[in-house]
């Protein structure tokens, strides 16, 4: 269960109210105020917190990581169909991806043996171009689907990271505001986990040893349950922020939110670059991922037993 961003407006309001109290405290505590009167000090305090109730407005519609789970499940089912013998782990993360290989695929590779007493170009070419190449091709497709599945999981991880960070930042801002103006409360070591949500994984794709650039989630996404890639996530970013006064808590929070928004772009670029590059590999080496179309498809109605097409039994 990730943080519900629907709580953010309430936290913004709570921050604002704590901010007005803190600003008033600062303005009246240290011999300040110059005798301006409580009403004037309160007005200055309220003015200094103007607009804080909207501070999280840009983040109210961030996606829910759980929304990505169905797509990830569909792609997991596709991997289960494409899993040839010996391939049950996720090529990107190294963790278990499917419970067992698809036994039906095992039979395809040996199907050429059924045609051993056939002659003709089509029979030979079926065995050479289709039967023998079926397992490695399916294995490459299995790897390609894994790349796509992990890219979507990484996307879910980005939004989980954003929600985790918003949860922490919005809570810490209120805590710091409650203590603003204290001697030791001048520093805010805010940690953004989003920087560690996407990691790049060089992947050798299936039995064909094609290199597919991939990404994986740098944190465990609760709703998808995919394991972390070997090596785990990267390092979270620590922001050294000034929380020495109520207005500094607000400006520091804005700095952190800007950093968070920038990091969303950085992490998204990692995903799109990996997918673009993988897509380029698929385009340039299509024959690794797809079997040639059987000549039989182009055969005229008669005679399909011409050696150029189906051939015939000896």
């Amino acid at each position: 269960m990730t943080f519900d961003v629907g709580q953010l407006p309430g936290r913004a309001q709570e921050l604002k109210e704590a901010g007005v109290r803190a600003a008033y405290r600062e303005l009246t505590r240290f011999g300040a105020g110059g005798g301006g009167g409580a009403a004037q000090m309160m007005q200055i305090a309220e003015d200094s917190m103007a607009g804080v109730e909207n501070i999280y407005d840009d983040f109210l519609d961030v996606p829910d990581p759980a929304d990505f789970a169905p797509k990830i499940e569909w792609l997991g089912n596709a991997m289960a169909k494409l899993a040839t013998e010996g391939h049950t782990s996720d090529p990107v993360t190294g963790s278990t991806a499917v419970s067992a290989h698809n036994p039906n695929l095992t039979l395809v590779g040996g199907s050429g043996d059924y045609l051993s007493d056939w002659t003709g170009v089509a029979a030979d070419s079926y065995k050479r171009s289709y039967g023998d190449r079926f397992a490695p091709t399916a294995s490459s497709q299995y790897a390609a689907v894994s790349v796509l599945r992990n890219a979507i999981n990484a996307e879910a991880a980005v939004w989980q990271g954003v929600r985790d960070d918003l949860d922490k930042l919005s809570q810490e801002a209120i805590e710091l505001m409650e203590g603003a103006g204290s001697k030791g409360g001048a520093e805010w070591a805010a940690v953004l986990s989003i920087a560690a949500t996407v990691i790049t994984v060089p992947l050798t794709g299936g039995a064909s040893a094609i290199a597919l650039p991939a990404v994986a989630a740098g944190l465990s996404v609760a709703s998808t349950g995919i394991g972390l890639a070997t090596g785990g996530g990267g390092e979270p970013t620590e922001l050294g922020l000034d929380a020495g006064s109520s207005d500094k808590v607000i400006s520091s929070l804005q700095t952190a939110l800007t950093e968070l928004a920038d990091e969303i772009g950085v992490q998204e670029r990692k995903i799109s670059e990996a997918l673009n590059q993988s897509s380029g590999v698929l385009d340039s080496q299509w024959d690794v991922f797809c079997l040639p179309q059987p000549a039989l498809v182009d055969a005229p109605n008669h005679p399909v037993n011409d050696p150029s097409y189906g051939g015939y039994s000896a």
């Binding site: 600062e26 303005l27 505590r29 240290f30 011999g31 300040a32 105020g33 110059g34 301006g36 004037q40 200055i44 003015d47 200094s48 103006g181 001697k183 020495g244 006064s245 207005d247 500094k248």
Partner: peptide, 21 residues
């Protein structure tokens, strides 16, 4: 001493901006 320093660094500029000081 630290309260004076805190006031000078963090609070005085705000009061000056508000025209109080």
């Amino acid at each position: 001493g630290w309260q004076r320093a805190h006031f000078d660094v963090y609070t005085r500029p705000r009061l000056e901006r508000a025209g109080v000081l």
